[in-house]
Design a protein around this nucleic acid. Structure first.
Lengths: 343, 343
DNA sequence: GTTAGCACTCTACCGAAACGAGTGCTAATT
DNA sequence: AATTAGCACTCGTTTCGGTAGAGTGCTAAC
């Protein structure tokens, strides 16, 4: 059976009406609101075909049709019109960012809030990923007897610090030499390189500071590699309770439960690599998201992906709007973060 | 009318039964389950008195009674038995902390998770408050042309850093002199002192570095005073959906909405100063908490309050258990944080 | 002061009936 | 051959009356 243009229009009508109303759409509704030139009987026939083709479903006899995941997929890929957010909204995102600039952290939280406010779904954002950047500089600062502070500055201008407690005191000169040594070794390296770093090699060339380096380095590497896992921000979690899909308390609870699993959310967002990705319903790997759609996008510093943002909503999602917003958001984030670096 | 011992027992019975069942408690239930020697008729009379005295309420004629806020208050203050958590649970809290030690941040998140898991309510924790500590040391580090990193180390060993971008480059020697100058002025001061700090005075004695100090200082003070607002962690928000109080979607949504207002939560937790505080129902200043109870406790470093934790639940809360858990938690937090310092 | 008994009240629950939205099929129309 | 009108049928939702049950307040007896 082929997909005539009228079928396409009917599918579009069903999806868009269902997105608005969350009610199964009947043939008469379509005939009256969308395809006024066509009778409901004709549309019924077409709908029957669409059902056979798997694009729509019937919750029960004598109800209208609702889109299937496959239907949404076709819609997203070939039917819907793109970029529906208007210039004013784009400006809003841009402007809001300029206002919130300063601390990267605050900016990220703000991005999350904006996303959820504009879409009325739940947003998730992961903070810039240290691991994905390179090391620019390492500074060791003596703050007390046998206590030093390690500050790490990355390509992306992100800082990490950790307090290292040593067994013995270090004199300032030695500390400077050690700092230089570490910088020689580490500056310019990517985090991937650190993982396979040869500790022994460094120790052999430690010019008498072996003992100290032996104490400092493991902690330092630890900080470098693992400190920034799972910095996840959510916003608008309560938005989903406005949706009829979640008027069922149990579903709502399930959803909220996942939203409290930071590590899980982190993972989900972290292994997306496309610029913009749309996962519809059962396309999601996670069992708990089988009735949701997830729109994700990555943001970059100097064209290197270092984080991502996402929107979670019901499969009945305003895809077009959500996609444009997420896209616009990551573009702005990338631009601003990259600029912060250049300054 | 005076409060005889039997009235007290009946009130206790009503409250404890209601805490367990969330159903209005009738006279027959009490006569059968709690005061087996007394007939339901007698208890009815007593209950009528208790209602007149304002300790219990009737949702409608021909329903049992439920405790009023005043009733809970009396219960918490004079009736309930204290410290109901057992040694095993105490050990659990202690042990969990030892496991999660290391980064303060992680520890705080973990505390929040533990609180909500053990109580099955929603927990809120605010991270150690920088503002409430004194400055130990300030370090300025040149990381690039006209870019310096300010690291602040406080009494409590907490660090803050901010990147400062200057209009002109600074040579290392000047930076050291400036650093020393700042340390002379700031080290040992409490955050309260900073607020009233006389900028002009420092500028007058700036030994030729006035221009740089003028650029550095405002940002630095900004960081000191405002950077750590609203580091709030929540956990177990979805727990409340298990409670019959929130089977009504609207109430649940209201609750979730508040829980997304970090600043609000921060404020609520931040202006509690007692060691342990219980606010019941309408005793809460916040409109949205009029049907909740809030148990808060503060934790300290070296006997100086620097943060607090709290539990939010329905007025029908297991006060005794919740209070002990919160108390135990803050004691452990205080101890461990204080020890971290000493090391 | 306490208790048994009883009339009364109010809610929650249940089932039947009416309703209405929507379908699928058939026959007529274009 | 495609479209449409008409109609019987299905199934979920709403409404409504009736009933059961829990609990009270009051009275009279103990």
């Amino acid at each position: 059976m082929d997909m005539g243009n009228r079928k396409r229009l009917i599918l579009q009508a069903i999806i868009e009406d269902y997105i608005n109303t969350a009610e199964p759409v009947g043939s008469r509704t379509i005939s009256k609101k969308y395809l006024t030139g066509t009778s409901s009987a004709t549309i019924r026939n077409e709908m029957s075909d669409l059902e056979d083709m798997g694009y729509i479903e019937q919750p029960h006899t004598s109800a209208g049709r609702i889109p299937s995941d496959k239907g949404y997929r076709l819609y997203v890929d070939t039917i819907m019109k793109q970029n529906t957010i208007n210039e004013a909204q784009r400006e809003m995102i841009k402007k809001e960012f300029i206002d919130s600039m300063g601390e990267i952290d605050r900016m990220i939280k703000h991005a999350s809030k904006l996303l959820s406010q504009m879409t009325q779904y739940t947003s998730i954002v992961i903070a810039p990923q240290f691991r994905r950047t390179g090391i620019k500089q390492i500074q060791l600062i003596r703050i007390d007897k046998a206590v030093i502070l390690a500050v790490i500055i990355t390509d992306a201008g992100i800082l990490k610090n950790s307090v290292l407690r040593l067994k013995q005191d270090v004199n300032p000169d030695a500390l400077i030499r050690i700092t230089n040594m570490l910088n020689d070794k580490f500056a310019g390296l990517g985090m991937e390189d650190i993982e396979s770093f040869d500790l022994q090699d460094l120790l052999n060339n430690s010019m008498g500071h072996g003992e100290i380096i032996e104490q400092v380095l493991p902690e330092l590497i630890q900080t470098l590699l693992y400190s920034d896992t799972s910095e996840v921000y959510r916003d608008g979690v309560s938005n989903i309770l406005n949706l009829p899909e979640y008027s069922n308390i149990n579903k709502a609870r399930d959803f909220l439960n996942i939203m409290e699993e930071r590590e899980l959310l982190f993972k989900v967002l972290n292994d997306v690599h496309d610029d913009v990705n749309v996962s519809i319903g059962k396309e999601n790997k996670l069992e708990q998201f089988k009735e949701c759609s997830l729109i994700t996008a990555t943001y970059k510093i100097n064209d290197k992906t270092i984080g991502s943002v996402g929107i979670i909503g019901p499969t009945r999602m305003e895809y077009s709007k959500a996609i444009s917003i997420v896209e616009c958001m990551t573009n702005n984030l990338s631009e601003i973060l990259t600029n912060i670096l250049k300054r």
